[in-house]
């Protein structure tokens, strides 16, 4: 599903990541960890086509990312749901329209899929906030809204960048529970986090594997994590 072959990524004359050879198969659950500034976000961006490798080859859904047009990248974003730490929204639209935004931009009638949207909002526990504007939401609500938006198009892969970075432990566990449920539905999950406790909590429920960025390389972590 996502294949890295001897991938390196440089920025501003310096090499941020190098020699990455790995595969994220369909239905897998991976955490990505490493110190701040190690390149976790860069690695995630390579995974959903926001960045193109400086060298090597990345295949997303069997296609070389380097040969993708801007329209192809847009198509790719519909197959990879992304949750950012700062979860950006359109502040002038109510929550339900923000969550339905991927449907809108894909030309699908969000109104016709209102029942699914209602069910999704209920699943992430945001039924009451459906009419609220994003600035009125708490950190945890924003994270759950971002997750709902990321999965509304039923993507095959869900990539989350520090999804629990701005929420308390209780909310972190709730978000993790949602991601684990998605994994059980067959989704491929990749989460960047520095929260070891979150990883341990996940490993109690799933066969999650841990990738660690060390010396600009992404390696499979040992059993200590």
């Amino acid at each position: 599903m996502i294949e890295f072959q001897d991938v390196a990524y440089s920025y501003g004359g310096g090499e941020l990541l190098t020699g990455i050879d790995l595969s994220l198969p369909q239905g897998s659950f991976h955490f990505l960890t490493g110190p701040s500034g190690a390149g976790k976000t860069t690695f995630l961006k390579l995974c959903y086509g926001e960045l193109v490798p400086s060298s090597g080859r990345i295949e997303l859904f069997g296609r070389d990312v380097r040969g993708m047009s801007r329209d192809d990248i847009a198509w790719l974003r519909r197959r990879v749901g992304v949750v950012h730490q700062d979860c950006q929204f359109l502040d002038h639209l109510p929550l339900e329209e923000n969550v339905a935004l991927p449907l809108t931009v894909a030309g699908r009638d969000a109104g016709a899929e209102a029942a699914d949207l209602k069910e999704l909002l209920a699943w992430v526990g945001l039924s009451k906030q459906r009419g609220s504007l994003p600035p009125e939401l708490s950190g945890g609500e924003r994270q759950r809204a971002a997750l709902a938006r990321a999965i509304i198009m039923a993507p095959e892969v869900i990539v989350a960048d520090e999804p629990t970075g701005n929420v308390d432990w209780e909310m972190s566990l709730r978000l993790l529970q949602l991601l684990v449920e998605l994994h059980r539905m067959g989704k491929t999950i990749l989460i960047a986090t520095h929260d070891i406790n979150l990883i341990r909590a996940a490993k109690q429920q799933t066969q999650a594997r841990v990738l660690r960025i060390r010396n600009r390389q992404v390696q499979l972590a040992g059993a200590d994590l």
């Binding site: 801007r70 329209d71 847009a74 974003r77 992304v82 950012h84 950006q88 359109l90 935004l101 931009v105």
Partner: peptide, 16 residues
Amino acid sequence: AQVIRVLRLVGARDVY
């Protein structure tokens, strides 16, 4: 610019 970033993030094509 922020709106455009969000739209690209959720899969909007340039033409949209």
